[in-house]
Design a protein around this nucleic acid. Sequence first.
DNA 1: TATGAATGAGCGTTCATTCAT
DNA 2: AATGAATGAACGCTCATTCAT
Lengths: 197, 197, 197, 197
Amino acid sequence: MEDICAQVGKNKQILAAARRVFAATGYYQARVEDIAREAGVGKGTVYEYFTSKEELYLEMLLEIADSYVNGLVAVTGQPGAIRDKLLGIGQHLRGFFLEHGQLARMVLQDPGPVNRELQEHLFLIRKDAVRHVEALLAEAAAAGQIHPVDTDAAARFFLAGLAGVLLPGVIQELAPPEAVTMAVDIFLEGVQGTVDN
Amino acid sequence: MEDICAQVGKNKQILAAARRVFAATGYYQARVEDIAREAGVGKGTVYEYFTSKEELYLEMLLEIADSYVNGLVAVTGQPGAIRDKLLGIGQHLRGFFLEHGQLARMVLQDPGPVNRELQEHLFLIRKDAVRHVEALLAEAAAAGQIHPVDTDAAARFFLAGLAGVLLPGVIQELAPPEAVTMAVDIFLEGVQGTVDN
Amino acid sequence: MEDICAQVGKNKQILAAARRVFAATGYYQARVEDIAREAGVGKGTVYEYFTSKEELYLEMLLEIADSYVNGLVAVTGQPGAIRDKLLGIGQHLRGFFLEHGQLARMVLQDPGPVNRELQEHLFLIRKDAVRHVEALLAEAAAAGQIHPVDTDAAARFFLAGLAGVLLPGVIQELAPPEAVTMAVDIFLEGVQGTVDN
Amino acid sequence: MEDICAQVGKNKQILAAARRVFAATGYYQARVEDIAREAGVGKGTVYEYFTSKEELYLEMLLEIADSYVNGLVAVTGQPGAIRDKLLGIGQHLRGFFLEHGQLARMVLQDPGPVNRELQEHLFLIRKDAVRHVEALLAEAAAAGQIHPVDTDAAARFFLAGLAGVLLPGVIQELAPPEAVTMAVDIFLEGVQGTVDN
DNA sequence: TATGAATGAGCGTTCATTCAT
DNA sequence: AATGAATGAACGCTCATTCAT
């Protein structure tokens, strides 16, 4: 049992170290040796668990991407008013940035040096995220709560806008929770606008 | 005269080549030799005009960033209704993505491997862009055309949301002009909402 | 008893596996792990029986070299005409190449990456083989069956010539048994020539 | 002109250094850095002239192989008695071993870690050498000077036997010129034998 | 005894930068 | 000013060897 723990532990240790190091310096400036040291293992050990630096990066990225979508699903799946759901999305996104910093950007915007395959995999993940927001909007539109809009574009506008509000600019800075509320209200008002008329 | 022309010409050639090569492959995968070849000059010549690969990258990035802000200023400076101005911003952004592709992302979102100083320089440029949109919003709010909001956050929400709408996901894809209209209308409705009430 | 059997068995298993793997890929491209897998034991077990990859290689080589000389002794020790003995040597050599392929070359010609000591050990073994052929020639010369020649050089000429005939060129190819007869006849005629006169 | 000299010089320098280092330690133990140092150039310079360690090795090997065949052609092309030609071949081979030591073995016997393509290229070169000796034998046979034999096998027997005589065993040792005479006489007597009868 | 996870020295290769011409 | 041959620091990856179990 301890063996299994140890093994699983090493894998997780290395992934966690990879997260920290890749986040701190980006893919190219991160040296495998740094990741190994950060993980508290030898350089060769990294290669016992991952076939290459690139593969390690990809696995790390996909893991994060999954946690992003899973969180989103959890939030949108809850019953409740649309505004609360949008606020929940905003808070989830904020927590995601808070936890993963620079890496969140790689997941949400530009993954950097990844092959076409992963690029498309990430794209599908992002699309998945967009789909969940779309479903929310479509449902609200069907219920007459909001104006029927191009839900795909609206969802992307909302998610990207949120990210822009949350990351004011320089690295590591994160907008306060109120910014989420404001963004949600602008967006919601925007999509409700014509309905009210 | 020819010398001066040559110099200026070489400088521009190299910067233009750098744009193409950096855009195509990113900072790390771009080799100085590739840029030199693309520019039609010798590898050593690049170092006559720029002290390092990094400096070349920075100058290129700043040049693009300037064109971004200048275009934004031109659009927002025009007299006209706020909706037209916002649409103009969207079209400018779309043209910017169209022209610079991957590099636009570096300017607007993540510059990649740049030192703190440039990072802040870029931040100031982005902030400058945000300021112009803010001014627009503040003016409209003063004129009672829109609801008084946190103009900084609203401006960032608008710009980032636009970018998200324009870049649906995978590289090189660009949303059609109608997407701009939709985003602008959602946003405008959103910030006007409470005013109308 | 089982322990001893096991030990002896493991040792033989590993040596046999080493023969196959070293023969297939050569010393440097053979990985200890491959040999262990081929032998059906764990990687660490190899080091229970041999102190290093090099030592394993040497033991394997010496074992083969011994079988080479022993076969030679068996053939030359039989009573019979000199031509039959030379043919026997040729057939033995052919069988040796057939069985050990690439490794036979290492034994007979170039052992590859071995230290001076083993190099000389192998040299002694080869010399031993030459000595047996020499004895044959000396005996025949004493009996007046062949011309008195420099038996050392003649023996080496015969053995090396045989090897050259048997290995036409590319790996794994082996000349047919008739080639042995031809080589023996040329050689025998050559050393008999002046005697006849 | 000096530039061209320098360039050609570098290429030759590196090839010459490669010959020395590969001959001294074999392919795998030779480090590119050693070759560079031996050539008096930087490590990177090696890669300006050769795309990889393997390619450098191959070019070096082919160069040597060419010099081997060319020498053989020069010797066999001269008019003269067959015995003189065979002696000439022996002397050429001796000089070849003298000049290239361990590398000669790689060319004549086992090239080591080379891809199939080069392996076959070397095989063709060896075959070429055999062909020239064959032509010699066929000519002599047509002139009734020697017995009609399987010229291919006989030629290989002769060349390989010569090599065996010339390299008594341990590295760097080389048989004296008289050994060549002896080997040639045995061989010649052998192939002439039946003719005389 | 047997194992295989862990290790890190070692090496091939790249590429930004220099400098002699 | 312009060049590109030369350079060597840097890094990803391999694999013989060790050692805790």
